[in-house]
Amino acid sequence: MLIAVLIGIAAANGSGKGSNAGSTSSPSETPSTSRTSDLTGDTDSTRSPSRSPSPTPDPTFDAFDAISVGDCLDAYQDPYDSDEWSEEMPDAVSCGRSDAYLKVTGVEDSSSSCDSEALDGESWWRSPTHDGDTIYLCVRRQFREGECFLGKTGSKKGRIAISGHGLMTSWSCSKDTVPKGFKYILQFTGYYESRCPDGSRRWDDFRRGVLCARVV
C-alpha cells in the first residue's frame, strides 16, 4: 500500500514538470517573432526615397547665365591667344563706359547659332559646360574713337590687314611692341558709310560701310 502511494506521488510530480516546461517555451518564442516583425516594419516606414544629387554650383557658368542680349561687357579677346579673353567670366557694365568693349547680340547653345562675321568684329564667348549645358554669348566689338587694336601685314606689299582676332583685341596706343602674329597698332578714327577722315586708312565692307583707322 505504501509503495502504491509513493508511485502515485512520483507520477504526479513528473506530470507537473512537463506542464510547466510547455507553458514556459511557448511564451519565449512569441515575443522573439513579434520583435522581428516590429523592427522590420519600423525600418520600412521611415526609409526616405532616394533622390538625385543636385549639381554643384559653378560661379563661372552662373555668370554666363546672368547675361542677356543687349548687355555690354568689359572684356576683349586676349591679344596673345584668340581662345582666351581678358576676363575669366563676363560681367555686364554700362554700355557708355570706355571699357565696354563688347555688346551681346545673342545668347545661344552653339557657336554656329551666333552666325558671327569675323571681319565685322564679331565673335562668340563660350562658357564652361555645366550639368550638360553650354552657353555661347554672341558678341560684337564696340569701337570708340581714339582707342587702339591690332593689325597684321597684308598679302600685298605695303598693305595693312585687319583680322577677326585683331578686331576683337584692345591694345595701348602708346606701346611700341605688339604680340607675335601682329605688326601694327591701329587707332580707330571712325566707322562711316564711304569716306574716312584725313590721314586714316580704310577697310571696305565693314558692317556695310568702311572701317577707318590710322597707324600709330
Rank of each mutant, 00 (worst) to 15 (best):
S111I: 09
P49H: 04
T36K: 12
D131L: 06
T105V: 10
Y101D: 09
I160P: 04
D131R: 03
W203E: 14
V139E: 13
D205M: 04
S94V: 00
L6D: 15
A66N: 05
C212R: 11
V216R: 14
D176F: 02
D42E: 09
V216T: 14
C148N: 06
A11P: 04
T105L: 03
T33D: 11
V5I: 15
S200T: 02
L186V: 10
G199F: 01
S82L: 10
S68H: 06
A100Y: 03
V104S: 12
C95K: 08
A11T: 15
V107S: 13
S45V: 05
Y101G: 07
G41W: 01
D109K: 11
L150K: 08
D71T: 10
R35N: 14
C196Q: 14
R141M: 02
S163P: 03
F188I: 12
F182M: 11
A118Q: 14
G166Y: 01
R201M: 13
G132Y: 02
R35Q: 12
V178G: 08
L211E: 01
F149A: 11
L39R: 12
P197R: 09
T60E: 11
W171R: 15
G41E: 11
L211D: 06
S112P: 01
D120L: 06
G199H: 09
S116V: 04
H130E: 12
L150H: 07
R201S: 14
G121A: 07
S86V: 05
S26L: 07
K180I: 09
S68G: 09
A75D: 05
R141T: 08
S113F: 03
K157R: 12
S194T: 13
D65N: 12
Y76F: 08
N13H: 13
T189E: 08
D91L: 00
S45Q: 10
Q187T: 15
S111D: 13
I67F: 00
E147M: 06
V69T: 13
V216M: 11
P179Y: 00
T134G: 05
Q187R: 15
A4C: 07
S54H: 05
T177F: 03
I185P: 08
E193D: 09
L211S: 09
S26V: 12
L167H: 04
S127H: 07
S127C: 01
M89W: 03
P90G: 03
K152G: 06
E117H: 10
T30S: 13
R201N: 15
E88V: 09
P53V: 03
S113K: 13
G132N: 14
E145C: 02
C72P: 01
E87R: 10
Q142G: 14
E84W: 06
Y76N: 10
S113D: 13
A100T: 04
Y192V: 05
L137A: 06
P27H: 07
E84R: 13
R214K: 15
Q142K: 11
E122R: 15
R159E: 07
S123E: 04
L119I: 03
T60D: 11
A11V: 13
P90D: 10
P53S: 07
G209P: 01
T189V: 01
F188D: 14
L39P: 00
G8A: 10
G96K: 03
G22K: 08
D115F: 04
K175H: 11
